[in-house]
Write a protein that binds this DNA or RNA. Structure first.
Lengths: 337, 337
DNA sequence: TTGTATGCGTTATCAA
DNA sequence: TTGATAACGCATACAA
């Protein structure tokens, strides 16, 4: 049994002494450097194994200025969109032996700023962030710090940064078009926040689809600022209790659509007969709703993977230019519209 | 505008020089040490502010042997149970300015071992883990390393560790009893893995409830190893396609119950008329199912908070003994049973 | 109250 | 191929 319980952690120096070499030779052996004889290398490795040596990542980071850690800043892990995003990220960072340090903003600018400060203080090698877009302070800190970062899901029109988003405008258009083509005329939108690019662009897609089909938008059916299940639930309740209730709802996200389902159930409305619903994000939980939720989009896990891949490539200097990706969306019909 | 773009990060030394004091005095000022005159302290702080100084957590950690980081090891963030758990943890660690580094095991022992290795190499101050319980290797590493840790949601009968779990046996009993009291006689269980304490104990509760009511358990209605929505979906499909299908299903978790809903929908079975369903964990998403999911338990976010609190107290020496908590559960009836 | 010097565990530079 | 030594940025024992 290697290692005694009462001893302190075994360090590189312990290994070196036991193997009868210098610290630095031991380091070479363990970091796969070429300048070392196979013989000593083998010996060091054996000793390290015996002693149960684990490199201290902190010390390594301090010296090499590389923490092998990336900061992931999202709104809220309990939101299935974000958790899927994180899962995608984690899957790829894991294979490259990078750590993830997680921060939540709850879509608050101040929290976002703190989150960025925290990850920067941790000296992360790079950052993946879903900006709150309430202001630019956090992003500007990132910019000034020269830490590589990629915006996920949202981007700024007037700020030069890397980003990976999906085609929200097109998604909003398709969603609305689909509802129109199914014969709906009074289509409500439970949109996201307008200062967020995805919220705004999906809304524009909604407007444009109406225009394309020669329909007027009833301003009373436009609700914005819905970001969570709870928001969706409350807004849908208000909306559906009206005398002239909409025939269909285009929800900002599947998460928001969940809230719509809840409201519809409570009001005794059947989906899609009494109310057609279409979500966004193509989240896997949507399949379990009754009826299964029709949705738009790329799976967030996919987006997370792509973002993580791109960031790691940047960190390894394998990307010269900028990352500005707009992924295409598609409609997944499942029965709610 | 503080800081030039082309310069390297501003260090404590920069602050010290600019303020005309020694590095160490600067350190005192910034870490709120008492041995310093108000005057110099103020000066240092001002300079630090001007220069945009941010303490390097890596260096600080190396020196103080405290990273202010805790490792969180769970099965899978995309599982709503775990994401809610993480959110609870994050909420409290945030207020105490601790970082969270996240690792997933996907319930695999090898992955779990690696996850523990990783967090230990990161020198985390403490660990919160949902053990896979496939073997004890990972936990023994933790034990040997003397890093404070708390098991969440699961515990070992034969291993002396801290843990915070819920009363799974009681939960399983109540769930089954409820179904029995509603008149169901053929009650299936889509149980979790039997090597996991929560899976096993909920199953025992299921058995005991039958016994208490003088009912026999039909072994054909016992399915184990369901941990995800997908598992629940597949198992439910098989189960419900049989000629003699159960009247009710007790699912290991809400997540598994989601899969049951999907299967029921596809087979055209109405809940609760054709099939009563009861879940576990009291996850918020369950409210949006149609009908809303009846469930057992404490919210995972609450458990996460408790675990994080307890761990932080341990780290600050505010807990002398051990943490062995079994939280009580309750039934939340919503309409699926 | 302040400064000097040392060390945390590594990696990197240089000379041997 | 190897080893002595410095350095990463900070905190702390000790001296002033």
């Amino acid at each position: 049994m290697p290692g005694n319980v009462n001893e302190r952690r075994v360090t590189l120096r312990d290994v070196a002494e036991r193997a009868g070499v210098s610290v630095n030779t031991a380091s070479r052996a363990l970091t796969n450097k070429p300048e070392i004889s196979p013989e000593t290398k083998r010996r060091v490795l054996t000793v390290a194994q015996e002693l149960g040596y684990r490199p201290n990542r902190i010390a390594r980071a301090l010296r090499s200025q590389k923490t092998h850690t990336i900061g992931v800043i999202i709104g809220d892990v309990a939101n299935p969109y974000f958790s899927a995003l994180v899962r995608g990220i984690e899957k790829v960072t894991r294979t490259y032996e990078y750590n993830v340090i997680l921060q939540e903003t709850d879509e608050d600018a101040e929290r976002e700023r703190k989150a960025v400060e925290t990850v920067l203080a941790t000296q992360v090698d790079g950052v993946l962030i879903t900006p709150t877009q309430r202001d630019k302070a956090a992003i500007e800190m990132l910019l000034k710090n020269m830490t590589p970062f990629i915006l996920m899901s949202r981007y700024f029109q007037d700020l030069e940064t890397n980003y990976i988003v999906i085609d929200d405008y097109r998604g909003g258009f398709i969603a609305t078009e689909t509802l129109i083509q199914k014969g709906n005329r009074h289509i409500a939108i439970l949109g996201g926040s307008m200062h967020i690019s995805s919220g705004y662009e999906r809304y524009v897609g909604y407007l444009e689809a109406h225009k394309a089909y020669g329909l007027d938008v009833d301003k009373k059916l436009v609700i914005t600022g819905c970001m969570t299940m709870e928001d969706g639930y409350r807004a849908a309740l208000r909306l559906l209790k009206r005398s002239k209730r909409p025939q269909a709802v285009f929800a900002f996200s599947d998460f928001v659509a969940f809230g719509v389902y809840r409201a519809a159930y409570e009001l005794g409305l059947r989906i899609p007969n009494d109310l057609a619903v279409i979500g966004f994000d193509n989240t896997s939980l949507g399949m379990c709703l009754n009826p299964p939720l029709t949705s738009i989009g790329k799976s967030p896990e996919e987006l997370g993977k792509r973002a993580a891949f791109a960031l790691l490539k940047m960190l390894h200097g394998e990307i010269s230019g900028q990352v500005k990706l707009k992924l295409s969306v598609n409609l997944v019909e499942r029965g709610s519209a």
